[in-house]
Design a protein around this nucleic acid. Structure first.
Length: 420
RNA sequence: GCCGAGGUGGUGUAGCCAGGUCAGCAUAGCGGCCUGUCGAGCCGCCGACCCGGGUUCAAAUCCCGGCCUCGGCGCCA
């Protein structure tokens, strides 16, 4: 019979006098049981020293009539300890006494060994893979725009300051402005996949100070609906890829994922005010809605269209940054995508006419000179364009119904946490 | 930034409101028994009241201050 080699982490040790069972999660993702009898004294001695979470390599023959409820059962002839784990582990590795999230994050590399955590990041990878391959199939190319910026001028959200050789620099809040410049540079279909930072002291289950987004920008659009179409198809492609490739992970997580209903419904301002008022949530005309409004609108579209994803279009211009394109006043071609009551993205059509852009900067009370590094290039041929940025952690959280966005990040950064 | 909740062995909790047995339980760790376990089982052991004041004969418990954490809102992805 064939000799098999198993390498992985020790997940269970059950010693019953003269027979011992060692459960190993192999590097291939299989659950393997090593069955050892006392008469094979060398292996028995080696196995008696094992501790949970140790890394081992075992060689042996498969057990003919497999009894254990695992993927593979082996009678090992040799066990080699590659790295012995301290028996006093800081968090319970069996998962029987689950540690609180904050404690788990303190010991994140150990915590991530849990099958549920593994499953989350395999799903996330499939999600991004599906979205990227959709974009590439539609002719978008992946670009890398700077994360260090010289001027904090985007949306007014708090930025992190960086000491840049004695000069003041900032971490971007969004790849937005450089994506637009890339469009002007003659790349009509691009996407940028990477981190952004917000220095907001938000204490919630849906905010991070560092997060990743898949940010798309496209030129020669007719209006914002061209952008929404791409966003919808991209998200659906991502979810579809998860359904196709992550059956095992979804069952570990106990989540049923259905392909999203298309087209995503679109609700608009000012109708939003009527919808919300009817649901008992009064929003001042000309203002945007809050967290409660998001949830109520979801309730509304779920009832009316059976949808979990939906767009909100025509936000008040007053509530949005200078670069969005206006529609009939006071509204803008500014679109949010909401998924199960949580904002996933902002986007829409951008203003590409230089003179209008400068007017809008003045209207916002900003200094046109400080934005010249950006606006100047709109003088030299800027096509109509638009885009959006989807928060990857938020999408993962909502897809898998995770209670906290931190579960969707390997090493989350929030107001309090910088380590590990 | 505003508001609320909470800090008890390595981990997760009970006890606190009505102050008073060696601070209970589970899990992990250590030791023992057990030849088919699979959340193995059984027996034993080790291990904790966030910090500093105060009230009281007596404080995990009541009061004050501090530190830390979580969450809701705002802002946003």
């Amino acid at each position: 019979m064939v000799e098999l080699i198993v390498e992985g982490w020790v997940r269970g040790i059950r010693k019953l006098g003269k027979i011992m069972f060692i459960v190993v999660d192999s590097k291939e993702g299989a659950r393997v049981q090593l069955t050892i009898r006392k008469q094979s004294s060398g292996v028995w001695r080696e196995a008696s020293n094992l501790t949970l979470e140790s890394v081992i390599r075992a060689e042996g023959k498969p057990v003919e009539a497999k009894i254990a409820k695992v993927d593979l059962e082996i009678a090992p002839e040799r066990i080699e300890v590659l790295s012995k784990a301290d028996p006093k582990l800081p968090i319970d590795p069996t998962g029987r006494t689950p540690a609180l999230l904050d404690t788990r994050l303190d010991y994140r590399p150990l915590d991530l060994r849990r099958p549920e955590a593994q499953a989350i990041f395999r799903v996330q990878s499939a999600l991004v893979e599906g979205m990227e391959s959709y974009l590439r199939s539609r002719g978008f190319i992946r670009v890398f725009t700077p994360v260090l910026i010289g001027a904090a001028s985007e949306s007014g959200a708090e930025v992190f300051e960086v000491n840049y050789f004695g000069r003041r620099a900032y971490l971007r809040q969004d790849p937005q402005l450089h994506r637009q410049l890339t469009i002007i540079a003659g790349f009509p279909k691009i996407y940028d996949l990477g981190p952004s930072w917000r220095a907001e002291k938000s204490h919630t289950t849906r905010h991070l100070t560092e997060f990743n987004s898949i940010a798309v920008e496209m030129a020669f659009i007719r209006d914002e609906h061209d952008v929404m179409k791409v966003e919808e198809e991209m998200v659906v492609a991502g979810v579809r890829n998860v359904i196709e490739k992550c059956e095992k992970e979804l069952s570990i997580l106990g989540v049923d994922v259905d392909e999203p209903k298309t087209p995503f419904p679109e609700v608009r301002f000012p109708e939003v005010y009527d919808i919300l008022e009817e649901m008992g949530c009064k929003v001042e005309y000309g203002e945007s809605y809050g967290t409660e409004g998001e949830r109520l609108l979801w309730e509304y579209v779920r009832e009316k269209y059976g949808a979990d994803f939906f767009f909100v279009n025509r936000f008040p211009f007053a509530e949005k940054p200078f670069y969005v394109m206006k529609a009939e006043p006071p509204w803008a071609r500014s679109v949010d995508l909401i998924y199960k009551g949580l904002e996933l993205s902002s986007g829409g059509q951008r203003e590409h006419r230089y003179s209008v852009l400068v007017e809008q900067i003045l209207e916002k009370g900003l200094d046109p000179e400080s934005l010249e590094w950006f606006t100047e290039f709109f003088k030299y041929g800027a096509p109509p364009h638009g885009g959006f940025a989807v928060g990857i952690e938020r999408l993962t959280k909502q897809l898998l119904n995770l209670p906290n966005i931190r579960e969707a990040v390997l090493f989350p950064r929030d107001v309090k946490r910088l380590l590990p």
